[in-house]
């Protein structure tokens, strides 16, 4: 895990999506968040949960032309998106 924000996001996803038997430190930053290769074991229905959790916690909206598909590629992509939105 390369940054605190990425660790925080892993914790957030684990809590919101009730992911069991996974610790934030087990999650590689570049792994896909959604789909069969996701270490969280999340599917597209969980994606809604992650999008809302991020909006409520960090006050940034994943929507419009900045799609969740793009942003939810990995913890790094999600963290970069939040940093970018917070700067603007």
């Amino acid at each position: 895990m390369s940054s605190t924000l990425e660790y925080e996001l892993a914790e957030l996803i684990i809590n919101f999506c009730n992911v069991e038997d996974v610790s934030p430190s087990d999650i590689p930053s570049e792994s896909p968040l959604i789909g069969p290769d996701s270490p969280f074991g999340l599917d597209s229905l969980d994606a809604v949960e992650v999008v809302v959790a991020v909006q409520k916690t960090y006050g940034v909206r994943i929507g419009g032309e900045k799609t969740s598909r793009e942003v939810l590629q990995s913890l790094t992509a999600l963290a970069d998106f939040i940093r970018r939105e917070k700067r603007e």
Binding site: S44, A47, R61, E65, T67
Partner: peptide
């Protein structure tokens, strides 16, 4: 219903957000 709203074609973007833009 959720897949049609959040997934098909929009990848979660949501047509209401695109229309707002």
């Amino acid at each position: 219903v959720i897949r049609m709203q959040e997934e098909i074609g929009t990848g979660g973007g949501g047509f209401r957000f695109i229309y707002a833009a």
